[in-house]
């Protein structure tokens, strides 16, 4: 269990993480999503005590990370897989880490086998491929057999086989009842890996929701309508109970009703239609819609807050 409460990090006038509060629960994979630069890594570094929060706090099973007597036994971390001394061997790299937390040598052999690096144990870390480096980073995270695992962009730059391997591993760890937090900027990857999603943009919480809820909420159908009488039609459709918002130029995006109904309403009121296109929103689109505000409008935009309400209403809170 990881708990974040009003976590905030400012660098001068730039706010990297803004009043972030959410829980990461055991037994599920929590996907930590956001565009590049959204503050995912900074958030993880604050949880680990590497960066000091400007305000707020993060705790792991009720304690601050820096107060853990032997952190590797409680929290496994993969932050930057390339952060190894290039001339140190794979085995020696793991030894340095294991010894600091009093972890036995036999456990090193075990995790090397687990991630499939036993054959290269004596090779220099600098000579490993990116995929192998990621495996080494994961081996390091697993050394202390921790209950909580945090992976920062673990599938970045991996080949498909490596991606599937990491996905299977993370799902397996969660199935064992562990707490797994994994960051990514790829919705498509998280859709396959995560049970829960925490989405941030510009350091702010945009959504904290079950993946199923997110899919249900975002895979709604919408209909794109083009008409010279947009205002008139929008009014009539709202009367009929549909949600309508203007699109570019003379367009309307209508939700909560079918194209057939829209056509009938238009005919009944003598509105000319130029286009009537049903549209199913993909997960990627839903995600981009959610984060768009935080990318384009930045701190002055009000979009993130309103988007959050949309998803929060589906039960993002305390289940």
């Amino acid at each position: 269990m990881i708990e974040l409460r009003q976590l905030t990090k400012r660098y001068g006038r730039v706010t990297a993480v803004d009043d972030l509060s959410f829980d990461v629960r055991p037994g599920v994979v929590t996907g930590f999503l956001g565009p590049n630069g959204a503050g995912k890594t900074t958030t993880m570094r604050m949880i680990l005590g590497l960066d000091a929060p400007t305000s707020g706090a993060a705790t792991i099973r009720g304690r601050r990370y820096t107060d853990l007597p032997a952190p590797m036994h409680e929290v496994g971390v993969l932050l930057d897989a390339r952060a190894t001394h290039p001339r140190r061997s794979v085995l020696d790299h793991l030894k340095c880490l294991a010894q600091s937390n009093g972890i036995a040598r036999s456990r090193i052999e075990e995790v090397l086998g687990l991630v499939g690096l036993s054959p290269v144990a004596h090779r220099r870390a600098g000579g490993l491929s990116l995929g192998m480096s990621q495996r080494l980073g994961i081996a390091a995270a697993l050394l202390g057999d921790p209950e909580v695992l945090m992976f920062d962009e673990p599938v970045n730059g991996l080949d498909p086989e490596g991606v599937v391997w990491i996905r299977t591993l993370m799902r397996g760890l969660a199935a064992e009842g562990r707490t797994v937090l994994v960051s990514s900027h790829l919705m498509s990857e998280m859709a396959l890996t995560a049970d829960r999603l925490v989405v941030i943009g510009r350091g702010r919480l945009l959504a904290d929701v079950e993946l199923d809820e997110f899919i249900r909420a975002s895979s709604r159908e919408s209909v794109l309508v083009r008409t010279p009488d947009a205002e008139e039609l929008a009014c009539r459709l709202r009367d009929a109970g549909a949600a309508v918002r203007p699109d570019a130029e003379d367009g309307l995006v209508v939700e909560g009703t079918e194209s057939a109904v829209i056509g009938k309403v238009a005919m009944a009121h003598g509105v000319v239609l130029h286009e009537l296109t049903p549209h199913r929103i993909s997960l990627e689109e839903a995600y981009m819609e959610l984060t768009r505000g935080s990318v384009e409008f930045g701190a002055s935009g009000t979009k993130p807050g309103s988007d959050r309400v949309e998803f929060g209403a589906h039960g993002g809170g305390g289940r």
Binding site: L48, T66, L79, R82, N101
Partner: peptide, 18 residues
Amino acid sequence: TAEYVTGTMRTSATVVPR
């Protein structure tokens, strides 16, 4: 400094947070 140059100081400070 060998730890700062290679980025392992971050790892070291993670496994020994004090």
